[in-house]
């Protein structure tokens, strides 16, 4: 499974949102899209998911040009994990995940035994089987994200698109969700996620797409492009960047927050 975007441009009327965006990701790869709010990440995702037509350029999923594909064909190739929002009606976790299998049944029928087995397996796999009869709005944020992940898995598409999967999660849940995402990528999924956490991007991603004002600012392996200059160009924030454990991790520290502290840096960090 692969995703390949070439020279993608999109405009809302006069306003150009995406200009000449190109990137690709192979199977077992986790691609992170980094960039400030309003940079066109959502538009990019909507194009890739087939929700927005009228773009220029080419989007290929698994080698298939998606222009003109119907929603059912799209759903077999690519699944979407939205940011958490309260649904209008509360469903049980099981029913919520079962909805992901809808593409496998005809319009006038309901998911059957095979689909219910898929749901059981996905819930087990993500360690949330005990929640299956709970209401979706009554579980924790991290659990909800895992439920949406399970819903995408039972869809049986091998490319997953995630819109800020760790936003609104506490630190522990962020790491739990990212660990699951990482292990799904290892199993063969191609995963595209948007994120606001640069350090985690470096730690978890195989590839990084940095975007600004609808254009690609940098694109490549995190080791090549993740620098303090990139952070400044993206967010306008001056940082110091430290490489740790033989460059397994890179940490950036905002200069402004360090300025004016009369304690040495190592003491400062011990406070936390």
């Amino acid at each position: 499974m692969s995703i390949e975007v070439t020279d993608l441009s999109f405009s809302y009327g006069e306003h150009q949102v995406l200009a000449q965006v190109s990137f690709e990701a192979q199977d077992k790869q986790l691609l992170s899209v980094l960039g400030p709010n309003g940079v066109g990440k959502t538009t990019l995702f909507r194009c890739v998911l087939g929700l927005l037509g009228g773009y220029e350029g080419q989007i290929k999923l698994d080698g298939i040009n998606i222009k003109g594909l119907g929603v059912r064909e799209m759903a077999r190739l690519i699944a979407y994990i939205p940011q958490f929002h309260y649904p209008s009606f509360n469903y049980s976790v099981f029913d919520m995940v079962l909805m992901g299998t809808s593409v496998q049944v005809s319009a006038v029928s309901s998911p059957g035994i095979r689909q219910k087995k898929l749901v059981e397996t996905a819930l087990e796999r993500l360690g949330i089987a005990h929640l299956k009869n709970r209401g979706f709005t009554r579980i924790s944020g991290g659990e909800r994200q895992l439920v949406l992940l399970a819903r995408a898995m039972v869809q049986e598409a091998r490319i997953l698109v995630m819109d800020e999967p760790t936003s609104n999660l506490d630190y522990g849940n962020q790491i739990r969700v990212l660990t699951e995402i990482k292990s799904l990528a290892k199993e063969g999924y191609t995963i595209v996620q948007s994120t606001h956490n640069p350090d985690q991007t470096f730690l978890f991603s195989d590839k990084v797409l940095a975007m600004k004002e609808g254009k690609v600012l940098a694109w490549g392996a995190p080791g090549e492009i993740y620098t303090k200059e990139l952070i400044y160009d993206l967010y306008g924030v001056e940082v110091e960047m430290e490489s740790l454990y033989n460059d397994l991790a890179r940490v950036c520290i905002p200069k402004n927050l360090m300025a004016g502290k009369d304690r040495p840096a190592d003491l400062l960090f011990n406070v936390y």
Binding site: L49, G50, V71, A75, R76, P82, Y91, V105, A107
Partner: peptide
Amino acid sequence: LLRWRMNVLTMGDDEAKTMGIN
């Protein structure tokens, strides 16, 4: 007949479409 599809529609258009529902 369309009762299961209505469940998926309550998730909103974008989500329903990406799940293969027109």
